[in-house]
Write a protein that binds this DNA or RNA. Structure first.
Lengths: 185, 185
DNA sequence: ACCTTCTAACCGACTGGTTGGTTATTTCCA
DNA sequence: TGGAAATAACCAACCAGTCGGTTAGAAGGT
């Protein structure tokens, strides 16, 4: 096997993504991550420092990927909701990572990038409202929370839900887009 | 200290609720639970069998409490959304437990009580629709998911959100109720 | 083309401490 | 006095993290 530091780094990150998405920080096992990545555990510590820092590397990578791929448009919130729905439908691991992050890293220093994105989006929503592109019966903060939660409505349902209401992705997507359209009509 | 099996059981359940709500199943420590409950770890195993079974006891207890306290009304979904919002605002631990359950117990046997409640509510929504008490542009399954996610919109936001949009409980509650009203108008 | 030197990449084996879970024994009340 | 309640002490397995040492392969001189 030829030596390739970048490849080893990447394989560790991929293995860690799968492990953390499935089991969270407390449930993840560094031995398993190294084993799946096909390298020694010591490399994990050489490249990422600690289990927690490895999680942070995984998470910030996925935040970046999310911001690159899902365009925000304050003037077309139903469209944004649809893209959000599609992204999490295609990347269930990304959503699980976000939830683990919320549950298991409450006191950690917040990600400046996320704070900044929130701020920019609230500004865009306020501008769209004053430009008349968006009704003003909700505050920008409320709009952001509502759109985000509606877009992820089904993936945050209890696991028993699917037994009673079998999944129908297209119908769900339509309901999400339509709900946001009604709220911004 | 007088001996009281029921009291010990209860204190263990209370300590376990706090521990599991904060740290999840994998992060919880049985030693700490026993210590906080003020009793020996062996009592935990005598009464609840294992760490996982203790979590199940905690969770089913909270599901029962939730169903007792938050009345469902298919003909008044905005009212239900308000009560849901209030409940989780007053019991943040309950919501965290529900999220841990979803993340950490994916393959476990589903709770029959929850499956049954889902079924009953979908039936009630369908009946309210055919009785003309509720518009029919969303399926009962969509309504359930939308109302549930809107009611918990703020508590499922990323932790960075509050830095940019400082909490205002009354305003948030009003937005939740209003959003559900708009969707069911 | 060949040998030497140097370094980053890599690994097996280990450690101190912690984990969920058990058992032998004692304490207390009906 | 018998049985339930409670405990201290214990255990094997596992955990995150470390360390001394090995090796592939690039660099550089001749």
């Amino acid at each position: 096997m030829i030596r390739d530091a970048e490849r080893t780094r990447r394989r560790l990150l991929e293995a860690a993504t799968a492990e953390f998405a499935e089991l969270g920080i407390a449930g993840a096992r560094v031995n398993r991550i190294a084993e799946v990545a096909g390298c020694n555990k010591a490399m994990l510590y050489a490249y990422y420092g600690s289990k927690d820092q490895l999680f942070d590397a995984v998470f910030t990578t996925h935040v970046g990927d999310f911001l690159d791929r899902v365009r925000f448009d304050a003037a077309d919130l139903p469209g944004y909701a649809g893209r959000l729905f599609d992204y999490f439908e295609a990347n269930p691991a990304a959503q699980r990572l976000a939830v683990w992050y919320r549950l298991e890293r409450p006191t950690s220093s917040r990600l400046d990038a996320v704070v900044e994105v929130n701020r920019v989006r609230l500004d865009e929503l306020a501008r769209a409202q004053s430009d008349g592109l968006l009704p003003a019966h909700y505050t920008p903060a409320a709009l952001l929370a509502l759109v985000q939660s509606i877009s992820t409505a089904w993936s945050s349902m209890n696991p028993e839900y699917d037994l009673v209401a079998p999944p129908d992705v297209e119908r769900r997507r339509a309901a999400v887009v339509d709900a946001v359209r009604r709220l911004t009509a």
